[in-house]
Each structure stands twice: as structure tokens, then as C-alpha cells.
Nucleic acid binder design. Structure first.
Lengths: 412, 412
DNA sequence: CGCTATTTGTTCAGTGGTTGAATTATTTGA
DNA sequence: TCAAATAATTCAACCACTGAACAAATAGCG
């Protein structure tokens, strides 16, 4: 199935070119070394004539550039390799979390060109105050980007909570936010490029979703399926199916933290009982490790746990084993349901992966029906802290790569 | 997002026509009354000229037909309504289960033109013997179909087990099958139309998947997202996301029966403990209701349970309440994870829905984070017994509707 | 009954984008 | 220096869609 089942709209002449622009650009992005026009023609099935025409459009629009002449290889006219432009459009990624703000800029080629983190406990601040600080950070990122010749094509903001299509944060429990209209509050900053192709200049999304996207594009292939579990104060998950993020019917998928692990376990903030969060959330782990009252900032707490576990502290080791088992039970259910082959431990779980991985794997191999045929990989996230910001910035440029015609046709 | 992210292949001139054939055909199929060419043009955004040309191709290929002249409506030249052909291609749906075989034929318009069920306990038979009987049933269906002027375009066989791409049944626990090469054994029957468009003439798939597809196409809209839970001896689920079946990375999604409900509950056949199946599988319900030794055929067992529950038998009511609660716990996890808005109780659960629904709903409203914003519907399946056969046959004709060019270009 | 208004469906020149073959460009190797 | 080889461009042909004009078929009205 390479084609969507039911076309959504009319296909006119121009759609052909739109499609082939995306096709060629996608191959340039996916190639491991700058491909020539001839190689692209062979790879896509288009004729060399068509590829030349398409590439001409892409060059004119500053989406690709011709690479430095490569060292000679054989007889014949030398090929001119094509690479993604590093002086064209770029994406701005923003993140707001309980104890830090982050901003980063990613160019078309996926390189992180700017990255800055601002640590501060944001819980005492009002949403407007917190977002004002974020606007400062964004302005600095923008200045950096334009200084390097980049054009910001859009921004994505990661929030640890439920967000609706319009960017309204319905609920961010750990920030204490409820019904915060983020785009309006953040719109005070310098304007980004206006709506491109129907997408607003600022997209607000769940932190776990964007972190999963970051993980997807950090990996080698773009067509993976995995579950990215992000263990912060709450536990969120991003679900990537066949290379694209699954958002659910209303965009609120991934609430793995409230999967029941023991239906009659301890009560949870959500109103249920025995949710995963009550066993493997950060507070639960700290409490089990006897570090409950320490009141450490969230990220420090994680590093502290890793240190103590590395030193062999028995209470911490037992706490992590318990959390890992609970996580494994929940993840086994997910893997049974969705038939995924990879589980990524991200966010606060990444540094704890050495201790969480064994119990998670044990539960999976006990409970997953198909584990015998095809093993399930459990690994820590490749991207470190603030993966969500990078993922968000990446999502902006991926949107351009997926539909370059929209960018090329933008009003200038 | 109406367009796939990364085009998979070259888009040539002909692709345009291919796409628009599918577009127009899809609108004809989705319309609630035969649309005219002019209405199609208005609805799709194509010009009337293009629609005429496309419709001409579809008429020539016997995929659509002109409807009877409709009663007059206003001034102007009368329109000629277009309907899906009922004398063109049709799909053959087959099902093999523990205690019955079924075959049915569905035409392009989705009407069931033939349906026959053969009841017999298949467990004592070898796979070859069982499939020989199914071949007989299929031959009768074919004779019926050709008698009505239909051309069988392909077949889908539903099996209660894990199936790989090649049609090899890796494991069907309740039939006692392991590594059965179904297409080879069933291939002895009269040949179907040869490979159309790269798809083999016989597709073997999981029973729960095909039942979910049947439910999808029985519904009004083609773009739904829901979980179809099929409670037979085992418990399977078909996951429909945005109008298409999600099969998982390897095609083995939906094993909801082995989601852990109580991690330290009773041991399960799969090796785990406390799986959903040990609480809400048919055997578990019968045991809890005190009907364990009765040794009823599976479908009779379900009707018996419904009778007793209807009569107010306290043991049965309690058994169903317990099963419903366990099911609700598992389903709540799924809904939290995937953000679905509908859960369909199918297979053996359909007749028991009046008693299962309340506890399932109760667990969902307790445990699903977003239930407050947007309620989750729980309803019995619209299709009755052998829904998988109908769904399978439907999947064959849907494939033609989704890609009519492949059918039109077939060698004749 | 004839005329007009109205809507449907078809015809046809025009256009955009791809195709395939021929042509030009640029290098290696004999 | 020339032939072989490979890359990229050019150009006539072609395909499918567009837009406008046209033909077909009816209702309403005098």
C-alpha cells in the first residue's frame, strides 16, 4: 500500500509537479551521499529530463544546492551532487517544561544550528510570564538564524499536556495550566513567516509527540514504527507508525501514564486506580527510593537516581526494578496491541535505561505473543535533553520537505 | 493532512487519470443517491469535461452504470444518475473458525449477494480436510456469483490466528493449527482472477481484522476510528484508524486478549499471567457462570449465556459483570493510548453487549483522561455472525474501488 | 404549440508537464 | 588526439486536464 485509499481532492495538472517535487526532494534528503540528477532519475523512475526540470525548481527556491565537486570516480562527464540547502528555510523549536525553557533552530538538512536552554522553575510563574520569557528566547534564536542566512519557516512549541488543534492547552497538570491560549500569548514576539500552505506559523503540540518525532528523524530510516516513552513527572508516549506520528482521533493519543497496571492499585490523580504513573512516574520512583522529601528539581532528581543506582544503592535499585516491571507490563500490552518492534526510553527514562531495560524486556518476553518470532528492541533515546524542541523544529522542516510546492509558491 | 508525506514512486502522466478514476468512483460509492456527472464535477473540483471522460472509462469497465431515469425535479436537461455496477467485479469472502465455515459474495455496491454457513466442529479435522470443505463452499459461491453475472475479483479468508504476508498461518491456537500454508492447500479450487495489481487472488488475514473492516464499511462514514473487539474463544481486536485498518509493523496487531489486566493474575496459555483472556475469554466467562463442563459449541454457548442473563440468572450476571470490568480495564488503556472515540463489541460479545456495556463504560469513564471532554461510545457490532467473511469480501471490492485503474487495465 | 430559461453533458482548441530520443558537455583512457 | 563513457539539456510528441462554446433535453409560460 503505497497510495492513499481514497483521494481527498481533485488532481490537476499542477499536482503532478507538486508530487514530483516532493518525491525528488525526499530522495535527496534520504540519500546517504549527494545524488546526481541521473541517479535520482534511476531511483525514482522519472526521466532525466523531468528530474532536471524539477531540480531546477528546487534550486531556484533555495531548497537544494549543488554540492562541491566530488573526487573523480570513473570515465564520463562528472556528476553534480545535490544536497539540501543549509541557507534556506529552517524550523524553530520551542519547549516549555516544569523546570526549563528551550529554543532551537534546525535547518533543512536536519542539523541543529542553534540551541539554548534556560533553567528555571516555571511553576510559580503565570502562563503569560512564562511565555514572555520564552518569547525572549525565541527572539534570540531568530537573530542567530537570520545571522546565518536562514529563514524561519515556522515554529513548533512542545508543552507537557493536552493541546487541541487551535493551540489551546487544555490541561498541563504539572505546570498547573488549564485552558491557556498559547498562540495568542506568544504571538507578541516577532512574526514568523505567515501561514504557509494552511499551517499556522506556530504549532503547539504535546511534548511526548514532538520528542518522538525527534527520535524518528534522528534515526536512520524514515519508515520506522516505535513507541517513544517519555518519563518525566507524568508519563507520555509518542506513537510512530510506519514513519508518521499517530495523533489519535482528536490528537490526544499517547496517554500511556494512565494505562491501568493494577486495577485496584493506589489512586491516581486522574481518578482511576493503579495507573502506570503511580508506579513508574518520577514521584513514585523517588518515593520508593526513599528520596521523597528531597524536593529536587526534576532533571536533577533523575541524574541523582542514576548516580545512586550506579553506586549500587539497594533502595534505588529496587525502586527502579519495580518501576521497570510496571512499565514493562504496560508496554507489553501496547506491543501486543500495535505489534511494534521497538520501544524507546526517552525523557527522564533515558539516563535510567540501564536499570529499566532489563525488567521491561523481561515483561515483554513473558507477555508478548509474537516475541518468539520477532524480538522487540528496547533502547534509550538517541536525542538527549530537550529532544522535544529539536523534534518540533524538525517537524517544521519536515513539513516543507513533504510538500515543497507550498514553500516555493509562498508570497514573497 | 490529505496527502501522504513522502511519495513512494514516480508520478507519471497516467497517474493523474488513475487518481481521478479513484476519486470519482469513491464519490459515487459514498453518495447517498446516484450523483450526476455535474454534481460529481462540483463535488470534486474537476471540470465537467474531465468527469465525463473519467465516467466514460468507468462505464466501459463495468464499474459503474447509469441509474434509471429519476423522477423529474426542475427545469433543464435531466441528469443521469450514476451507481456502482452490480454486474461487475465482486469479492469472495471465506471464513474458517472453530465450529463453522462460511462463504459469501459481496458486489461492488457492498450488497451481500450470496451467503452460506456450514456448521461443524473443525478441531478434529486436519487443516487439509478443513480447507477441502471450504473449497467446496467456495465453489458453490462462485457458481452462484457467475450465475448472477458477477466476476470474482479475488478472495479473502479469515482465520482466527496469526497470519503472515504470504498467507502462512503461523499459529491458530483454538483450531490447533501451526504453520499451515493455506494458499497452497486452498489453491486446488477453481482459479480466481489472476493477480490484480500485485495482489494475490487469495488473501489470508486475521478474523478480527476482517471483522473490523466489515464493521467499518457497514457504517455510514468511511473515515472512522474505532476498536473492534471480537470475543470468541480467544479475544482479538481490529484497530481502525482514520478509516483504514492498522495492521502493525508485521501485521500482527490487535492481540488485545493478552493485555495484562492483573499482572499477577491466573496464568494464561500465552505464558503470561492475568491476561484479559483469563477474565473475559469465553471459557473464563462460562467457568465463572458455573457452565464450565457443559461443553457447548462456541456459538451456542454465547446464545445460552444471553438467554440466562436475560432471564436474570445471578451467576451469569455476575460472570458477565466481571468480564465486562476486565474488558473495560483493558479497553480503557487502549483508549488512553490511541484516543479512540468508539469501541465496538463484536463476535461473541455482540449478543452479550447489553450486559457487558455498562461495566465497560464505567471503567472507561473512570480511567480515560479525555473522557470528560469527549465521550467514548461503546456499541455492539452492526454485522452479525460471520462478519469476518463479509468484511473479507468487502475488502476485495474496496481494493478495486480504491484503485480502479488496476482493474480496468487487467488482462482479459 | 412555440419560445425562453435552465441545467446537463459533449466537443474542441489550448495548456502544463512528462516522455523519449537526439544533442551537447565533460571527463577518462588508449 | 580521439574514442568511449557518463551527465545533463533540448525539443518535438503526447497525454490528461481546463475553459468555453455548443448541443441536448426538459419546465414554465404565454
Amino acid at each position: 500500500m503505497t497510495r492513499p485509499d481514497a483521494p481527498a481532492g481533485a488532481v490537476r495538472q499542477g499536482s503532478l509537479r507538486e508530487w514530483n517535487l516532493a518525491l525528488v526532494l525526499d530522495r535527496i534528503a534520504a540519500a546517504d551521499r549527494p545524488p546526481s540528477r541521473a541517479e535520482l532519475a534511476a531511483g525514482t523512475g522519472l526521466t532525466r529530463a523531468t528530474v532536471s526540470a524539477v531540480v531546477e525548481d528546487l534550486l531556484a527556491g533555495r531548497l537544494v544546492a549543488e554540492a562541491e565537486p566530488t573526487p573523480r570516480t570513473g570515465a564520463g562527464r562528472p556528476s553534480r551532487g545535490l544536497v539540501l540547502a543549509t541557507d534556506g528555510p529552517a524550523g524553530l523549536g520551542l519547549e516549555i517544561n516544569v523546570d526549563y525553557l528551550a529554543a532551537c533552530v534546525v535547518d533543512l538538512a536536519g542539523r541543529v544550528r542553534h540551541h539554548r536552554v534556560h533553567r528555571a522553575d516555571l511553576r510559580p510563574l503565570s502562563p503569560a510570564e512564562a511565555l514572555a520569557r520564552l518569547t525572549d528566547l525565541a527572539a534570540r534564536a531568530r537573530a542567530d538564524a537570520t545571522g546565518e542566512g536562514l529563514t524561519l519557516a515556522g515554529a513548533a512549541l512542545a508543552v507537557p499536556g493536552l493541546v487541541d488543534d487551535a493551540g489551546l492547552v487544555r490541561l498541563a497538570p504539572n505546570l498547573g495550566w488549564r485552558d491557556v491560549p498559547v498562540p495568542a500569548l506568544l504571538g507578541a514576539g516577532p512574526p514568523l513567516t505567515a501561514h504557509v500552505d494552511g499551517v499556522p506559523p506556530l504549532v503547539v503540540d504535546n511534548e511526548a509527540n514532538l520528542a518522538a518525532l525527534g527520535e524518528l528523524h534522528a534515526g536512520p530510516t524514515g519508515r520506522a514504527s516505535f513507541l517513544h516513552v517519555s518519563g518525566e513527572v507524568g508519563i507520555g508516549a509518542g506513537i510512530v507508525l510506519d514513519g508518521s506520528l499517530f495523533r489519535g482521533a482528536r490528537g490526544w493519543s499517547g496517554e500511556i501514564g494512565h494505562i491501568p497496571v493494577r486495577p485496584d492499585g493506589p489512586p491516581c490523580r486522574c481518578g482511576g486506580r493503579g495507573c502506570l504513573e503511580t508506579y513508574a512516574g518520577q514521584e513514585a520512583i523517588l518515593a520508593a527510593a526513599g528520596l521523597a522529601g528531597a524536593d529536587l528539581p526534576a532533571d536533577t532528581a533523575t541524574t541523582r537516581l542514576a548516580e545512586l543506582a550506579g553506586a549500587g544503592d539497594p533502595a534505588v535499585l529496587q525502586a527502579l526494578a519495580g518501576a521497570g516491571t510496571a512499565l514493562g507490563v504496560a508496554v507489553a500490552g501496547v506491543v501486543n496491541l500495535l505489534d511494534l518492534d521497538t520501544v524507546v526510553l526517552g525523557g527522564g527514562y533515558a539516563p535510567l535505561a540501564p536499570w529499566l531495560r532489563p525488567p521491561v524486556l523481561a515483561e515483554i518476553s513473558r507477555r508478548v505473543l509474537t516475541a518468539a518470532w520477532s524480538p522487540v528492541t528496547v533502547r534509550p533515546a538517541a536525542l538527549g535533553a530537550a529532544a522535544a524542541a529539536v523534534g518540533g523544529a524538525g517537524s517544521v522542516v519536515r513539513r516543507i520537505l513533504a510538500r515543497p510546492a507550498g514553500w516555493l509558491a509562498r508570497p514573497t
